[in-house]
């Protein structure tokens, strides 16, 4: 039983990607990342003062992410606006995925705010959000060890596929496994999983996703070079 993907997409093929840096004029740094039917827009503000004071860290700057899905973004029902359990979780994992790459020791007691807005969603939103946020942070000039790229990998009917769309993501017995990585050093900063999968398959899935992330990274690099190396 072989699984055939939409639009004859190969198992290791990503949806068409597009990235742009500097999309929001008033932000300190901003970026748009589009992968298939998913679009993330990230804006960075700061470093700026952090209040209330108990949130401050006297040793290094604090990264604060806010993930938000816009009401009209999905293909189905209207998404209820405002924070939810799900968006809080994604904000947290985004912070954790980006933090290892950033060098914030010069910004003690201050905060760097990242706002990620999903204008179109077709699965893989947290991955698109992380990819866009990393670009926006680079655009804001925050020192970092590496760019972070993210993409999901999954298992559908015995096939390990990369970059799931909404139909694949909601497939009943499927597995969805978003991965974020610092691409040059191949350090993984986010792995989540939903579904049942064998250990060997996870190892193979992560091998596959590393190749896919290199492609995402290329798009990131080109977007930054487009703005800065005219």
């Amino acid at each position: 039983m072989t699984y055939k993907r939409k639009n004859n997409r190969k198992y290791d093929e990503l949806r068409p990607m597009e990235a742009k840096v500097g999309v929001i004029k008033r932000a300190d740094g901003s970026a748009m990342f589009k992968i298939g039917g998913t679009t993330a827009i990230a804006a960075v503000y700061g470093p700026r003062e952090l209040y209330p004071g108990h949130l401050q860290n006297p040793q290094k700057g604090v990264l604060r992410c806010n993930y938000n899905m816009l009401a009209f973004s999905g293909s189905g029902d209207r998404v209820r606006p405002g924070p939810s359990r799900r968006s809080k979780e994604i904000s947290l994992v985004t912070e954790n995925a980006l933090n290892p790459a950033l060098i914030l020791d010069k910004f003690d007691n201050s905060v760097i705010d990242v706002f990620i807005e999903m204008t179109n969603t077709d699965a893989g939103t947290r991955c698109a959000g992380i990819t866009a946020a990393s670009l926006a942070l680079a655009d804001a000039g925050i020192p970092m060890k590496d760019l972070v790229a993210a993409v999901s990998v999954g298992k559908i009917k015995d096939a390990l596929v990369v970059d799931l769309d909404y139909d694949e993501d909601s497939y009943e017995e499927g597995v969805d496994l978003p991965v974020a990585m610092m691409v040059n050093s191949e350090k993984i900063t986010l792995v989540q999983m939903d579904g049942l999968i064998k250990k060997e398959e996870v190892i193979q899935a992560i091998k596959n996703v590393k190749k896919a992330l290199k492609k995402v990274h290329k798009v990131q690099v080109n977007a930054l070079k487009e703005k800065y190396a005219k």
């Binding site: 970092m144 060890k145 590496d146 760019l147 610092m182 691409v183 040059n184």
Partner: peptide, 29 residues
């Protein structure tokens, strides 16, 4: 761009905007 390898080996020294990661010098900005 951040993460790009600028030089390999220990003969070069990282200054502002760069950092050493093992034997490589990479850009941080």
């Amino acid at each position: 761009i951040p993460g790009q390898t600028l030089a390999t080996g220990m003969d070069y020294l990282p200054a502002n905007g760069t950092l050493r990661e093992e034997e490589k010098i990479i850009s941080s900005q």
